[in-house]
Structure formats: C-alpha cells, structure tokens
Amino acid sequence: RATVIILKCQTFFTLPLSLPQFFEMLSRFLAEGAASGLNIFALYVTDILRVTGVDVHLPFPHFTAEGVASAGQWALLALIGYWVLSIILRLLVGVVRRVFWMLKAGTALWLFGLIVSDAKAGSDTTAVRLASLVLGWALLGLAGSGSEKTVQVEDRMSILEGRVKAVERRKGEE
C-alpha cells in the first residue's frame, strides 16, 4: 500500500497536468486515503464493540473511494448552496430593510406635511402631533436596529470569551 501511495505521489508531482486533471487526481488521492482511514476506524470500532460484548454488523461491507468522493461532492455542493443562499438572503434582507426605511421616511414626511399644513390646529396641538411623530420615528428606529446590535454584541462576547479561554490556557501551561 505504501509503494502505491509513493508511486502516486511521484506521478502527482512530476507530470505537468491541467487544472481539472490536477483536481481530479487530488480528489481521487484524498478519497482513497479517506476511505482507507474510515475502513480502519470502522474496523477498530467494531472490534472494540465486539470485545465489550456488543455484536455489531455494519450495514455496508466497507468504505470505497467512490463513495467517499460522492459524499464529499454532495457535501461540497451543500456548502456552496448554503453559501450562495446566505448571500442571497442577506441581500434580500438588506433590500427589504431599505424599502421599509424608505416607507417609514415617506410616511413620516407625509404626516409632517399634514401636521404643519393644518391651519385649524393650534400651536399646542401641532407641537403634540410633532412630538408624537418624532416619538413614533424613534420607536420604529429602535425596533428595526435592535436585532443588528444584539448580533454585534453577541459576536463581541464570543470573541472576548475566546480570548479569556486562551489566557486561561496560557496560565495553565505556565
């Protein structure tokens, strides 16, 4: 087995390959290594379970390089899909936020125009209406930005927790 790997490594590094050939050979090499490792791991686990008295029969005979490569390709496809979907959703959320902000601003300007142009209302009534408009604007602003600030605070907390753990590990090593 070791000579096969050495020969593949020598072939891998000596031949000038195109990029698709390189990735195909790399994925085949990694899939064979992962399949061998998984087979050894499954063998150890079944032996350990058999020694402890649990009779285990694996539903599959052994891991193959093609199966590992197929699972890896599906995992890569799922990862790329997740990445693309998260980008699209972030863009959509950003656009929806902007649209709602524009609706809020347009409504506030329209209400401001109605409040100021009402000639029948007294100055006290106009002041109360404007104060209500400003209060409503502020409350809508707080409601919309609260989730962003919470996420930012949580991110900062996780960074600080990681730093504290690193300092504790360093103190434990000394």
Rank of each mutant, 00 (worst) to 15 (best):
10 Q>H: 07
15 L>T: 13
100 F>T: 03
12 F>K: 01
87 I>P: 01
153 V>I: 08
27 S>L: 10
140 L>E: 11
117 S>F: 09
148 E>C: 06
26 L>G: 09
8 K>I: 01
87 I>V: 14
65 A>W: 03
114 L>V: 04
161 E>I: 05
4 V>G: 09
24 E>W: 09
43 L>I: 01
85 L>T: 04
156 R>S: 11
109 L>A: 11
168 E>H: 09
85 L>V: 01
79 L>S: 09
154 E>F: 12
133 L>Y: 07
105 A>T: 10
113 G>D: 10
1 R>E: 12
109 L>Q: 07
147 S>N: 09
91 L>M: 04
155 D>E: 09
65 A>N: 02
112 F>K: 00
156 R>I: 07
125 T>I: 13
63 F>M: 03
35 A>N: 01
153 V>K: 03
168 E>D: 13
103 L>W: 11
164 V>I: 15
146 G>T: 08
101 W>F: 15
158 S>W: 10
66 E>A: 10
131 A>M: 07
123 S>R: 12
24 E>D: 14
108 A>Y: 01
100 F>V: 04
12 F>R: 00
78 A>D: 15
147 S>H: 14
49 L>T: 02
1 R>G: 15
149 K>C: 02
20 P>L: 03
103 L>F: 11
99 V>T: 08
127 A>P: 03
30 L>R: 02
71 A>K: 11
53 G>P: 01
44 Y>F: 12
151 V>K: 12
63 F>V: 02
143 A>R: 08
116 V>I: 14
50 R>H: 13
72 G>S: 05
164 V>A: 09
32 E>P: 00
11 T>W: 08
49 L>A: 08
60 F>E: 06
140 L>Q: 13
111 L>W: 03
90 R>W: 05
83 W>K: 04
17 L>S: 07
